[in-house]
C-alpha cells in the first residue's frame, strides 16, 4: 500500500523555496572565466573532449527547460507555486547564460553549436517534454495534465537526467589535473539551484498523488523515464571503447556508475511522492528501455556498446 502524505519525509513548501532562492543568488559575471580559459588550454585532448561532451549535454538541457517552463507558471495551482516557479525560470535563464559564457570563454562555443551528437535528447526527449508542457495550455482545466507535465519536467528532466549528468560532470571536472575554478563554482551553484527545483517537483507531485492524480502522474513518469534511459545510453552517439581491456572495463564502470545514479533516482522519486508500490514496475521499465537502447546502438554501429563489450570480456581480475 502506498504511504499517505503524512508518512512521507518532509519537503520544502513553495514559500520556503522562494525564500531560499532570495538567499542563494549568484552572478554569472562574478565567476573567474579567464582562469578557466588558461586552464582549458592545458587540458589534454582526451579531457577536453570528455568535459566538453558533458557540458554540451548540460547546456542543451538548460536551453530546453528554459523554453518549456512557462505553461507550468501560467497555470500554477496556487499563487505561492507561481511565485516560486517565476524564480525557477530566472534560474534556468542564468544557467544558460553561465554555459554560454563558459563556452565562449574557453573558445568552445562554435564546437557546441556545430555538434550533432545529442540526437537522442534533441529528437526524442525534448519533443516529449515540449508536448507534455504544451498540453497544459491546451486543457488548462485538467489538473492531471499540469501534474504530468511537472513530473516530466521536474522529476525526470531535472531529478533524473539533470542530476545524473551534473553529478558526473562535477566529479569529472574535479579529476582534471588543472584548475578550472569558474566551472567548479558554476556547477556548484547549479547544483544548489537544481535542489530547489527538484524539491518543488517532489512537493507538487506528492500533492497531486494525494489529490487523486496518481494515475496520470505515474503514466507520465513511466513514459519519461524510458526516454531518459535512452538518452543516457545514447544509441545515436558512438561511445569510445578502448582496446586495452583494463581501460574498457574502467570506461564501462564509469558509464554504468552514471546509469546507476539515474536508476536510483528513478526509484527514490517514486517513494518520495507516495508511489512506492510502483517502484518495481518502473525500474523494470527503465531496465528494459536501457537494454533496448543498447540493442539499437549495436544495430547502428555494428559493434556492441562499450558496456556490453566489457560484459563480454567477463569480470575476470587482471592477471
Amino acid at each position: 500500500m502506498s504511504a499517505t502524505a503524512d508518512d512521507l519525509p518532509a519537503v520544502r513548501s513553495a514559500e520556503a523555496l522562494y525564500t531560499a532562492w532570495e538567499e542563494q543568488h549568484w552572478s554569472v559575471g562574478a565567476l573567474p572565466f579567464a582562469e578557466d580559459a588558461a586552464g582549458w588550454n592545458e587540458l589534454s585532448s582526451f579531457w577536453r573532449d570528455e568535459l566538453l561532451g558533458a557540458i554540451r549535454e548540460l547546456h542543451a538541457g538548460e536551453v530546453a527547460v528554459t523554453e518549456t517552463l512557462t505553461p507550468l507558471i501560467d497555470f500554477a495551482h496556487t499563487p505561492a507555486d507561481r511565485n516560486y516557479l517565476c524564480t525557477q525560470i530566472a534560474d534556468e535563464a542564468r544557467h544558460v547564460a553561465f554555459f554560454d559564457a563558459y563556452l565562449e570563454a574557453v573558445g568552445a562555443i562554435a564546437d557546441v553549436r556545430a555538434a550533432a551528437d545529442l540526437a537522442t535528447y534533441q529528437d526524442v526527449f525534448e519533443p516529449a517534454l515540449r508536448r507534455a508542457t504544451g498540453a497544459v495550455r491546451e486543457e488548462p482545466a485538467d489538473p492531471g495534465r499540469w501534474y504530468a507535465a511537472s513530473v516530466h519536467y521536474h522529476l525526470v528532466t531535472e531529478a533524473v537526467l539533470g542530476v545524473t549528468v551534473l553529478r558526473s560532470t562535477r566529479q569529472f571536472a574535479r579529476r582534471v589535473r588543472v584548475e578550472l575554478p569558474a566551472l567548479e563554482q558554476g556547477l556548484t551553484n547549479l547544483a544548489r539551484d537544481e535542489s530547489r527545483h527538484i524539491s518543488f517537483g517532489l512537493a507538487s507531485a506528492r500533492r497531486g498523488v494525494a489529490d487523486g492524480h496518481g494515475e496520470p502522474i505515474l503514466e507520465a513518469y513511466t513514459a519519461a523515464i524510458k526516454l531518459a534511459a535512452r538518452v543516457l545510453v545514447g544509441p545515436d552517439r558512438r561511445s569510445a571503447a578502448p582496446v586495452v581491456p583494463a581501460a574498457l572495463r574502467a570506461r564501462a564502470a564509469q558509464i554504468e556508475g552514471q546509469w546507476g545514479v539515474a536508476r536510483d533516482r528513478v526509484a527514490r522519486n517514486l517513494g518520495l511522492i507516495g508511489l512506492e508500490d510502483a517502484v518495481d514496475g518502473v525500474v523494470t521499465a527503465w531496465d528494459e528501455a536501457r537494454e533496448a537502447a543498447l540493442d539499437d546502438y549495436e544495430a547502428t554501429f555494428g559493434a556492441p556498446h562499450p558496456v556490453r563489450q566489457a560484459q563480454a570480456l567477463g569480470a575476470g581480475a587482471a592477471r
Binding site: S44, F46, A240, V243, A246, A247, L248, A250, A253, Q254
Partner: peptide, 12 residues
C-alpha cells in the same frame, strides 16, 4: 581508472 582510459585512447 580515468587515467588508464585516457592513456589507452591515446595509444590507440
Amino acid at each position: 581508472s580515468l587515467a588508464i582510459v585516457e592513456m589507452a585512447m591515446t595509444l590507440e
